Amino acid sequence: MEMPLSTLFLTNTLICALLASHLIIRPIKSEHTAVLGSCYSLVALLHVLGYVFLISGVWQVGALRAIAATLLGPLYYYYFQMVLSPHKVQIKRIALHCLPAVFVTLALFGRFTFLMNWVDPLLLLSFWGYLGLTINELVKSKAELKSTKTMPMVFQWLRLLVVTLAVNAFVELLIVWELSTGKLLAESVFAILFALMFLVTNMLTLYCALQRHPLWDWMLETQSNIRFDRNKTKQVSDATTALIKKFTEQLNELEWFKVESGFTIAMAASELGVSQRQLSEAINTETGQSYSQFMNKRRVDEAVKIIRQNPKKPLTAVIYDSGFRTKSSFNREFANLIGVTPSEFQKILTLDVEIQT
């Protein structure tokens, strides 16, 4: 079982490294995308250390992995706070969450051998403790998250991360139990099952990132396009309304939504003479949508207009004329907003025209 497990560790390392680079190495990033990128970087490190430990058996590598594992829970909890309650995040408090890592380091590399028996219980306590904290954050914010237009997607994403943390906590408990019976890590059934589940989850996440799925896409718009504060309510100001009016006018007059290479929020903000953050927050406050959601709705509106004017026009031409770049994104966004696929909508209009004539 050593070869499959080491292969799974290495594959997970590569995928997590890709996700981390996608979040961190980008011209526009937010605080919470940077933190999530750090989470994936840490997970990649955990898997590469697991891979090296399996093929070398060097105990120091396993010790480094244990130390890194104690930082995973705090980092994910920090990410939840950045998304849900950024005003509560305090660097001094974050430093306190590193104490378990200090304890494990002293136990494994210091001369405090009497602490060795506490390493595994502390690791499990860290996993389960931070799982409880993230669940608590999500439950407290559930009602507020679902009360706004864009937040349900955020809630789904955070819930997915909680499930991942829960699976990790359960499997770590089972692995510790299995190793206590005398089995090696390479012989652990639960280790290979966990690596497989993690691989599937990572591949799905990477797919969402590459496809710009709404579940992932909300994080990538601006420096703080979706920032939730359960103690504050945003008010739509006159300046915000004026900015959206100006943006909408130029969007329609200059047909930014039809730009073949894609008209980014950076380009729009530059044309309007405002920062990307200002424009994104104005769109989110006024419409409850992200920049990409707003642009896709405008493209769908244009597609509907084109099909109404000429129900028999080929959909390939409609896709291009309405500003979409791929057939899959056109079909997905059209069905989400209109309730039927473009071809079905076209058939309905064609039938209406034939009946009228």
Results as ranks from 00 to 15, higher is better:
103 F>M: 10
104 V>R: 00
104 V>H: 00
105 T>P: 03
106 L>A: 14
106 L>Q: 04
107 A>E: 06
108 L>R: 00
109 F>D: 04
111 R>F: 12
111 R>S: 14
113 T>H: 15
115 L>Y: 07
115 L>Q: 01
116 M>G: 03
119 V>I: 06
120 D>P: 00
120 D>E: 10
121 P>M: 02
123 L>V: 03
124 L>E: 01
127 F>T: 02
127 F>C: 07
129 G>T: 02
130 Y>A: 05
131 L>M: 14
132 G>R: 12
133 L>E: 06
135 I>A: 14
137 E>T: 04
142 K>M: 10
143 A>E: 10
144 E>P: 01
145 L>S: 01
147 S>T: 06
148 T>Y: 06
149 K>Y: 07
150 T>F: 02
150 T>H: 02
151 M>P: 00
152 P>R: 09
159 R>A: 14
160 L>T: 12
160 L>S: 15
161 L>R: 07
161 L>P: 02
163 V>A: 10
166 A>K: 01
167 V>L: 15
167 V>E: 08
167 V>W: 07
167 V>I: 10
168 N>T: 11
169 A>W: 06
171 V>Y: 10
172 E>T: 09
172 E>S: 13
172 E>M: 09
174 L>C: 13
175 I>W: 08
175 I>E: 12
176 V>L: 15
178 E>Q: 14
178 E>A: 07
178 E>D: 12
179 L>C: 09
180 S>K: 12
181 T>L: 14
181 T>V: 03
182 G>A: 10
184 L>V: 06
188 S>K: 02
188 S>D: 03
189 V>Q: 09
190 F>C: 05
190 F>M: 09
191 A>N: 01
191 A>K: 00
193 L>Y: 08
194 F>Y: 14
195 A>W: 08
196 L>H: 04
197 M>R: 00
197 M>Y: 03
198 F>C: 09
198 F>Y: 05
202 N>H: 07
202 N>I: 08
204 L>R: 05
205 T>A: 15
207 Y>H: 10
207 Y>E: 08
209 A>K: 07
210 L>E: 13
210 L>P: 09
210 L>G: 11
212 R>T: 08
213 H>C: 07
214 P>N: 12
216 W>Y: 15
221 E>G: 00
225 N>S: 15
225 N>A: 13
227 R>W: 01
228 F>Y: 11
230 R>Y: 09
231 N>G: 06
235 Q>S: 07
236 V>P: 02
237 S>F: 02
237 S>R: 01
240 T>H: 01
